[in-house]
Amino acid sequence: MVPPDELDEHNLTDEVRELAAAESRYVLVCRKGGRPSWLERIWSFLRRQPIEAVTIVTNQRAEAGDHVTMTVRETALPEVYETVQSHENLD
């Protein structure tokens, strides 16, 4: 998670930085498809195919290891999404 006041301190593309800075939003890097099972992690390791990441620009603060549920929309940037709605997490 990159908070709005630290956007310039991280290795973000100019486009992502501008998208987040426009409304003082957070940048989250999450696993594509959500939380993988142990079997999916092992299978990914054996096939030497890393778990893909996506970038989400959002108003919701989250820390490493937090589980978040959001409705997102695509942006013009590949693998970068904006939050349309955050959902209450039931973990």
Rank of each mutant, 00 (worst) to 15 (best):
M1N: 09
P4I: 07
P4V: 05
P4Y: 02
D5P: 06
D5K: 01
L7Y: 09
L12E: 09
D14S: 10
D14L: 05
D14I: 08
V16K: 00
R17P: 10
E18S: 14
L19V: 13
A20I: 06
A21L: 12
A22W: 04
E23L: 07
R25N: 11
R25C: 14
Y26I: 05
L28V: 10
V29A: 14
R31D: 15
K32S: 15
K32W: 09
G33A: 12
P36G: 04
L39K: 03
L39Q: 09
E40S: 11
R41G: 12
R41K: 06
W43K: 11
S44G: 09
S44K: 02
R47Y: 06
Q49G: 06
I51V: 15
I51Q: 07
E52F: 04
E52I: 06
A53F: 13
A53Y: 12
A53P: 07
V54Y: 02
I56P: 03
T58K: 00
A62D: 12
A62Y: 03
A62I: 09
A64Y: 06
A64V: 14
D66L: 01
H67K: 06
V68W: 01
T69M: 02
R73Q: 15
E74L: 10
T75A: 03
A76R: 03
A76L: 11
L77H: 14
E79F: 07
V80S: 05
T83P: 03
Q85W: 10
Q85I: 08
S86E: 11
H87K: 02
E88P: 07
E88N: 03
L90S: 15
D91I: 08
D91G: 14
D91R: 02
